[in-house]
Design a protein around this nucleic acid. Structure first.
Lengths: 334, 334
DNA sequence: GACAATATCTGCAACGATGTACGGAAACAG
DNA sequence: CTGTTTCCGTACATCGTTGCAGATATTGTC
């Protein structure tokens, strides 16, 4: 049987409530009593029962993080940072994988997962703004990374369109004219894919280069999908002199398939990605990409969420935070 | 205010306890009453309060996973699979990053994290068997991946030494004689590094090739450490014709540095790793490595842990499970 | 038809903390 | 020295569930 507050109270010769008051930094306690309580706690090795505390207080001091797949490098790196930042403010992060399925996203917003957490960092991939707004419930939700620009919802995002435009412009500036895009999500309106694609088209337009739908390859944001997309284009005989992967995993998969097929990178085809995961730096050739400021995103999203939870942020409308980006020019597209 | 069991009881015209009994599959309930309760639950949209349930029952239905750093690809991929497997048995996984620091590993074993979980999957990097055994407490702990062969402790591992030996033997068979090893942890006795290193030496011995300490580069298991290790060897003028990274991240970082320096892989130096993370398949050249059967590890470690928690596994001594391995020969070391 | 055995349901206490309300002591004003 | 204010500490109820023990209904046995 674990040591309870009652045991501490008895040992310190005070009431149970006084122990509770000491632990909760209640103002009016004589230093002497406070000391006695602390001594008793140390002596007995008391640790507060978090479950009981949660039941009574209604707070769990856990944040929920909903991503499609934790094995995706971007999410893994993000989750790692989020956990570190959260712990500095005394919170833990509980992760849920949605597999990008609308049903799983809904249960994450409403079900048991929600109960276990005081607030949610949510990466909506299948749900749209209206669905999120109607299912989100009362506890704070901060949308992450994607770009559902809904005035009702808090959002921490990156400059998806601008960054994608910058990458594309970089490829164009290097003389590339037939830039294949990989990882488009045709039936998805929300989500970064659409915005990044928009940035791509805007860059083309600005450069006076025509948009060719044949160069747009749909696919999930995984290495194997990138490889498959390249294989598809090559097999169909579509010609292209650059690949823009809508995220790094896709770009790296694409680059691999190009090299396997004997296509030289960057001489024959330049390759660029999006996210600047650690792997991008160490790929061969190293991957040109855009860094969305993950540290800033982690810091500010956790900050906003906890501020909402603790009532420090009280804006009625959604708070929108957009992190900056940095183009990282490397060997794959100099 | 959320709907409670009491509300359901009132709506169904039964006692609170009967609702509880229905939810806990108590045997003696008339089908008719059971139906009424279920109807009331559906009508009111009742969901059990997990915190209250935990407080009363002492179970959280959460498993703890302690790894050094979730952004390490191996751990990210493992965590993802573990979560999926656990959810099939009705458990969630709460992750804690230890940073490979002994102090953090200890608090994960004893502190608040422990309270929140019914059992632990623990990757000890800094602690040794005795420390784990003495701090582990009463709830089940299954050691993961490393090779603290302690008869007191449950353990799911891979064939570290054998697999490392196989990789090294493969390099030797290809005619490599000066095989640099990267990622050694000199002052660590527990942990996979030592075992993998042992496998390496065993292979050398079996082939009658002398062991050269100058070829052993210490370093953390990250890409940048691999790159730094290669840089160190090259700068010191140490000659070598192969690199064995004690994990894939190290090997990939090493390979990157080699290529940057104009060393051809595999012609001049062959490179092999350990773990078979997804990235290894898509690297260029693709990375020869050994697959430790991650699916099997995930499946069996979760299985063992939950069996312990639920009292289905009652062996007094530690259960030891060793997953098989498969050598994946790819371009970096054909 | 009486008694035991079994099935079905219920009430109360408890898990371990916190919120509210209040009582007594000390400090201060007049 | 009384009355008010400020400190300090306590008792009791409560969060929403489950374990235990028991009450009541139903069935079976002879």
């Amino acid at each position: 049987m674990a040591v309870t507050m009652n045991d501490v109270a008895r040992a310190a010769g005070v009431s149970l409530k006084t122990v509770s008051n000491v632990l909760n930094d209640y103002e009016f306690i004589r230093p002497a009593t406070k000391q006695r309580v602390h001594d008793a706690i140390a002596e007995l090795g008391y640790e507060a029962n978090l479950t009981a505390r949660s039941l009574r207080s209604g707070k769990t001091r856990m944040l929920g993080l909903v991503v499609s797949d934790l094995s995706a490098p971007y999410y893994a790196e993000l989750a790692s940072r989020l956990m570190t930042v959260a712990s500095r403010r005394g919170y833990r992060v509980l992760i849920e994988q949605s597999g990008a399925a609308a049903e799983n996203e809904r249960t994450a917003l409403q079900g048991a997962f929600r109960q276990l957490t005081d607030g949610l960092l949510f990466t909506p991939l299948a749900m749209d703004a209206d669905a999120v707004a109607s299912f989100r419930g009362k506890k704070p939700v901060v949308l992450l990374g994607e770009h559902i620009m809904d005035p009702r919802l808090d959002l921490v995002t990156m400059k998806n369109a601008e960054a994608a435009q910058a990458v594309t412009a970089h490829l164009l500036a290097a003389g590339r004219r037939r830039i294949a895009v990989m990882g488009a999500h045709p039936e998805e309106s929300a989500g970064g894919a659409g915005l990044r694609l928009r940035g791509y088209r805007k860059a083309l337009e600005a450069a006076g280069v025509g948009f060719d739908p044949a160069l747009v390859a749909p696919g999930e944001w995984r290495r194997d999908a990138g490889a498959a997309a390249v294989a598809g284009l090559l097999d169909r005989g579509v010609s292209f002199d650059a690949v823009f992967g809508l995220n790094d995993a896709i770009a790296l998969g694409a680059m691999h398939e190009l090299l396997v097929r004997g296509v030289r990178v960057p001489q024959d085809v330049a390759v660029a990605g999006f996210d600047d995961i650690d792997e991008a730096r160490f790929a061969s050739p190293s991957l040109t990409t855009v860094s969305p400021g993950m540290d800033e995103i982690a810091e500010r999203s956790i900050g906003l969420l906890i501020d909402r939870i603790e009532g420090l942020e009280t804006a009625d409308a959604g708070v929108h935070i957009e992190a900056g980006f940095v183009l990282k020019v490397r060997e794959s597209a100099p």
